[in-house]
């Protein structure tokens, strides 16, 4: 027990004390609250509310409505954070080479044949989760993470080699990812750019019509709520997350001989 540990224990116990006091003195409201916070209640009230058209987003799933409409900017930034981390991974491992022909080892035949059957099912389930995000629990990110399981299974059960032979390379995934991000940015700007030349008021990230701007994304398709841009965002987010996380998985499992070349690519240190 040296001095550092004691200081650490003291400060951590202070943190615990502060948090416990906050909770037990009802700093966060009653210990078991019976009412919603008014802000949460107004989200629930306005999420699908055609009777109050200026605040609605026509989405049955309130969480998705918050994520992509009421607080859409957060999610845009969050997507960028994922993009930044992918770029950061590239920065650290730049100069790697994708070597095909290192041989396939893989797992047993049982696993292989099961994976062949199950991987398309997983991807389909992921897509379904993503595009039903405004109706049922789910959304682009959730769908993407479900679909990534297929890619990770293929990497482990077959090998990276198998993915290369199928034309899945990291640069293509990166391209897909960038295109998805571009699509999201364009969608967020779409109404504003339509309104700008004709001098109609419109906002960035706008979905449904507001009091002071008449432009609106399509809300309903064949009597099914489409929730306007939320559907599009979920679709693009699925692409982004799927390609991004697959990219990350492939980068993290690169073989040692593939990483050899990053040493040769050494640069002047300034």
């Amino acid at each position: 027990m040296n001095r550092k540990d004691i200081a650490l224990a003291l400060s951590l116990s202070l943190l615990v004390l502060a948090l416990s006091l906050t909770i037990s003195l009802e700093g966060l409201g009653p210990i078991v609250p019976r009412e919603l916070r008014p802000l949460g209640a107004s989200f629930v009230q306005n999420s699908y509310n055609p009777w109050n058209a200026s605040l609605t987003s026509l989405s049955l799933n309130v969480v998705t409505a918050i994520v992509w409409d009421y607080r859409g900017l957060d999610t845009l930034y969050e997507t960028l954070v994922l993009f930044a981390s992918i770029a950061a991974t590239l920065v650290v491992l730049r100069g790697y080479s994708e070597l095909s022909g290192l041989g396939i080892k893989g797992l047993s035949d049982v696993s292989k044949s099961v994976t062949v059957v199950i991987a398309p099912l997983i991807v389909v389930y992921g897509i379904a989760t993503a595009i039903h995000g405004h109706l049922t629990p789910g959304g682009g990110f959730q769908g993407g993470t479900i679909a990534v399981v297929a890619a990770t299974l293929i990497i482990a059960v077959f090998s990276l080699e198998y993915l290369y032979r199928r034309g899945v390379s990291t640069s293509r995934l990166m391209l897909l990812r960038i295109l998805g991000l571009l699509a999201i940015i364009l969608t967020s700007l779409s109404l504003a750019s339509i309104g700008m030349p004709s001098n109609v008021n419109a906002y960035i990230l706008q979905n449904m019509a507001k009091d002071d701007s008449a432009l609106s994304m399509p809300g309903v398709l064949f009597d099914t709520p489409l929730a306007g841009s939320i559907f599009l965002y979920n679709l693009f987010e699925f692409i982004i997350v799927f390609s991004g996380l697959t990219f990350a998985a492939m980068m993290l499992v690169l073989r040692e001989s593939e990483l050899e070349s990053i040493k040769e690519a050494a640069e002047v240190y300034e």
Binding site: Y77, V81, A84, S85, A88, V92, R94
Partner: peptide
């Protein structure tokens, strides 16, 4: 969220000379 974007790109830029 913005702070996190700022932070993660700063980490990455700090590691730009990853050979050291």
């Amino acid at each position: 969220v913005s702070l996190e974007l700022l932070a993660i790109s700063s980490y990455a830029l700090t590691a730009f000379y990853r050979d050291s």
